[in-house]
Design a protein around this nucleic acid. Structure first.
Length: 538
RNA sequence: GGUCCCAUAGUCCAGUGGCCUAGGACACGGCCCUUUCAAGGCUGUGACACGGGUUCGAAUCCCGUUGGGACCGCCA
């Protein structure tokens, strides 16, 4: 960053300076140290972003009483115009201490391999990924396996495949390496030992048993500016001394994150709101180690229907359970993305790429969000409708196979068209597969419909009609429908009285897509077979 | 208990002191379309937690109350 900006930032006791161009008050600019309110900071931030997007500031410059003091904007999540060049950067206004202004964005997802990837973890990973992709930065996967009791390699693998399933690819990680490895905490012990030793040597930490404990100084105000929650501060008195190294030789979470985030040059720490109260402890460690702090951005929690932290008793919590229920990655991604973020317009269905383009940390909400399955269903259905027919088929296939249907016996084009015909029917892939199963099997039809509702009196008329229908020369949706309409007109009956028995006989259900389309696609032979099966053909 | 965070319909979001008679979406109800069910179109019910204050003007700023949540581990 420029010396001028650095000076300005450090002049202020909070390490923040707001240039006059963002002055919104007609009576002159307020020193930022008085603008402690989160909402004001957020407004400034917003203003700045809008200004950059529109290539000019939205502030009414004529009414700004302090134009001569005007400095070009330092910007947030947008483009910096300070040096007269456009450059992506993060929010200096929101930064205390470290300024990653000119540096590449580096974010990380740091799960501990003590379980499968769950909804909350997926949400955090997603937001990190979005920010990395939005800023053109790096998304790093770090495995926090310092809990030797509960961590397993299996869970590590499951978590990784869960991320892959969601479409969240990482640039550095235990499986693919990177310049800041190793990416498993259990392999970085020398670092934790080194800095713990340094703190002990400096008298900032002490040993107790085999553990190393950091002495929390009294009377310090621990403050930071969170990108989403604003200014947060806490008094050091409220903290107990912090265990750095456990007696088993492993570092504790609060210590290891600090060492790793620093050593891996993480620019933004984006994690769940439940970590807000851990942050002051980490701040203390950054200061003790004389390291620059990353930017902190905490994310709202995801709650169950009872507004309690999402857990097993709320039903499915692992990402894989959703896959198995018939939800697919783009939809889960989309749904999770809508929890705590929106692009500022009314768009709520988007692809991964669209989300990455639109995403903005500054627009993340603070209120905890309730996980609503109904909404997930809807979003899944919307994506299902938009899916490429071949992709849709490949997604439905496994569910058909699971039901024991002989998928391979059919022409893929037929199956694909069958699914296309299903249109918006079904919210999950599993549902769609079940609804469309009659295209592949007459058995499923017989299982659910016995044909006993047809009276002998009706049967006569139907046999006559179906025989005529089956021997009509053309076999298309249009001809089938026209033929049926004409027949109904001629006999003075409702078309429904012909269409419904046909539907029941070939699909076994009262609901289906347009029955003439179904019959047309299924083919004359198959329709004949099914009508014969119900004794409806003369 | 201590500390911190949050507060717009049942749910997810919009809202940044006047464009608010509070907007969109899910869910729910009605109507249209129609061979059924979806989809689609139109439409209805439904919210600024409460109380003070600042202001000509408050969902929005301030204070308090209430409610909810998180964290206070040699778990992460």
């Amino acid at each position: 960053m420029s010396e001028r900006l650095r000076g300005r930032i450090e002049d202020d006791d909070r390490g923040i300076g707001i240039p006059c161009i963002l002055c919104l008050e007609k009576h002159g600019h307020e020193p930022v140290k008085e603008i402690r309110r989160r909402s004001v900071l957020r407004r400034k931030l917003r203003q700045s972003v809008e200004g950059s997007e529109g290539q000019r500031m939205t502030v009414d410059e004529e009414n700004c009483s302090c134009q001569e003091n005007q400095l070009p904007s330092i910007c947030i999540a947008g483009y910096n115009t300070l040096m007269g060049e456009k450059r992506r950067c993060i929010a200096p206004e929101m930064i205390s201490g470290r300024n990653s202004f000119m540096e590449k964005t580096r974010v990380r997802f740091a799960p501990s391999p003590t379980g499968a990837l769950h909804i909350g973890g997926g949400h955090t990973a997603l937001f990190n990924w979005l920010w990395a992709r939005h800023t053109g930065g790096s998304f790093i996967l770090r495995i926090e396996d310092t809990d030797m009791e509960r961590s397993t390699k299996e869970f590590e693998d499951t978590i990784m495949s869960g991320l892959v399933w969601l479409g969240l690819d990482w640039d550095e990680g235990p499986d693919r390496g990177g310049d800041f490895g190793p990416y498993r905490q259990s392999e970085r012990l020398h670092l934790y030992r080194k800095y713990a030793g340094q703190l002990v040597d400096e008298g900032l930490a002490y040993k107790e048993g085999d553990a190393v404990i950091f002495r929390v100084p009294q009377g310090k105000t621990l403050a930071f500016d969170d990108v989403v929650y604003g200014h947060i501060e806490m008094q050091s008195e409220t903290l107990k001394d912090i265990v750095l190294m456990k007696s088993d030789g492993m570092p504790t979470y609060n210590y290891a994150v600090v060492v790793d985030d620093h050593c891996m040059a993480i620019s933004h720490v984006i994690r769940g709101e439940d970590h807000i109260s851990n942050t002051p402890k980490q701040l203390l460690l950054y200061d003790a180690l004389r390291w620059e702090r990353p930017v902190f951005a905490h994310l709202p929690m995801i709650l169950g229907k009872d507004k309690k932290k999402l857990s097993k008793r709320h039903g499915a919590t692992s990402i894989y359970e959703y896959r198995d229920m018939g939800y697919f990655p783009e939809a889960v991604f989309n749904f999770l993305g809508n929890l705590g973020w929106n692009a500022g317009d009314e768009k709520e269905i988007y692809t991964r790429d669209e989300a990455a383009t639109l995403f903005d940390l500054a627009r993340v909400t603070r209120k905890a969000a309730v996980f609503d399955m109904e909404k997930l269903n809807f979003i899944n259905q919307e994506h299902l409708k938009r899916l490429d027919p071949d992709v849709r088929l490949s997604l439905v296939e496994p569910f058909w196979r699971e039901e024991g249907l002989s998928v391979d016996a059919f022409d893929r084009r037929y199956l694909r068209d069958a699914l296309t015909l299903m249109g918006g029917r079904g919210q999950t892939i599993r549902e769609l597969a079940a609804y469309a199963s009659y295209f592949l099997s007459f058995d499923v039809v017989r299982e659910r419909y016995d044909g006993k509702d047809i009276t002998e009196e009706q049967r006569g008329g139907l046999k006559e009609f179906f025989s005529a229908l089956l021997s009509s020369p053309a076999w298309s949706t249009e001809t089938l429908e026209a033929f049926t309409r004409n027949w109904a007109d001629a006999k003075g009956i409702r078309i429904k009285d012909l269409a419904m028995p046909l539907r029941m006989a070939i699909t076994g259900a009262k609901v289906s897509p347009g029955i003439f389309e179904v019959a047309s696609l299924m083919g004359r032979d198959e329709v004949r077979k099914r009508l014969v099966g119900y004794d409806l053909l003369g």
